[in-house]
């Protein structure tokens, strides 16, 4: 006897897999100096996307980034990287987790006792790579990718702000991490320098499918690189959506930020 189709259940088409989160933070609370910098912030960074996090100065964007990278521990809440909970685990056990992502600091955080080449080679040496020819080739490739190969023998103190960021970017990508976290990568740069860094970030994302999270104030940067935008306010995610939704929002808080209007009652 032939099996009859179930009259109640339609033949099931496979459901699309829900987007997987590379970093998932839930209910982060952090008090610094008696003030709740993070007050229940939750965010998911999906594999392969570029998420821009915006917010006014002092709203805890960099603090959030440091929590996501495991550089700060929250008072409460959870951070999972690639499915692994990192809150409360020993610093030594965090090493392998941290090597899954690269982090670009606001001021580059280059090691000032090393020249540019040594700075970029440092992660490879620390990973145990010993062949100087291979190291040199990879360092040159990374420096060429950020347009800094000709400056490889300079010390960090002799670089401009934009050059430092590009060298730091080369250091962050040299181990080919699956995820890159950027803390204000274009702060303090002129419009052309900003566009160059934006192009690099977008380029890495497209060439290597790197998952990226970018803390920024720069709306042009958001337009150029972001797949999604989160807006942080009072220690929480106030808005999460696409750039189109963000730029056309009617939310008064976001509109004030987008239009660059001063706070009410502020006088010259």
């Amino acid at each position: 006897m032939a099996a009859r189709p179930d009259p109640v259940r339609e033949p099931e088409a496979p459901l699309p897999a829900p987007p997987r989160a590379f970093i998932e933070a839930t209910g982060l609370v952090k008090r610094l100096g008696g003030h709740a910098v993070l007050d229940g912030a939750s965010i998911r960074l999906l594999v392969g996307e570029t998420l821009a996090i915006l917010g006014r100065s002092g709203e805890g964007k960099s603090v959030l980034l440091k929590h996501l990278a495991g550089l700060m521990n929250p008072d409460s809440g959870s951070v999972r990287i690639d499915g692994e909970e990192i809150v409360g685990i020993d610093e030594r056990r965090l090493g392998p987790v941290r090597r899954k992502f690269g982090l670009l600091f606001q001021n580059g955080a280059l090691f000032d006792s090393f020249d540019v080449e040594e700075n970029v080679a440092f992660p490879l040496v620390e990973l145990g790579l010993r062949d100087p020819v291979v190291i040199r080739q990879r360092v040159l490739a990374a420096l060429e990718a950020v347009g800094m190969a000709e400056h490889r023998h300079k010390m960090p103190v002799h670089l401009s702000g934009g050059q430092r960021k590009r060298v730091a970017l080369a250091r962050a990508i040299i181990t080919q991490p699956r995820c890159l976290l950027y803390d204000e990568p274009t702060a303090g740069l002129d419009p052309i320098g900003t566009a160059n860094i934006d192009r690099l970030i977008r380029g890495f994302q497209q060439r290597f499918q790197v998952t990226s999270l970018v803390i920024t104030h720069d709306l042009k940067t958001v337009e150029r690189i972001a797949d999604r935008v989160a807006f942080l306010r009072a220690g929480r995610v106030h808005f999460l959506g696409t750039p189109a939704e963000f730029f056309t929002t009617g939310d008064p808080v976001l509109r004030q930020f987008l239009d660059g209007r001063p706070d009410e009652g502020e006088t010259a």
Partner: peptide, 8 residues
């Protein structure tokens, strides 16, 4: 922090 971020 950069050292720590590199897993060192």
């Amino acid at each position: 922090d950069a050292l720590r971020a590199l897993g060192i």
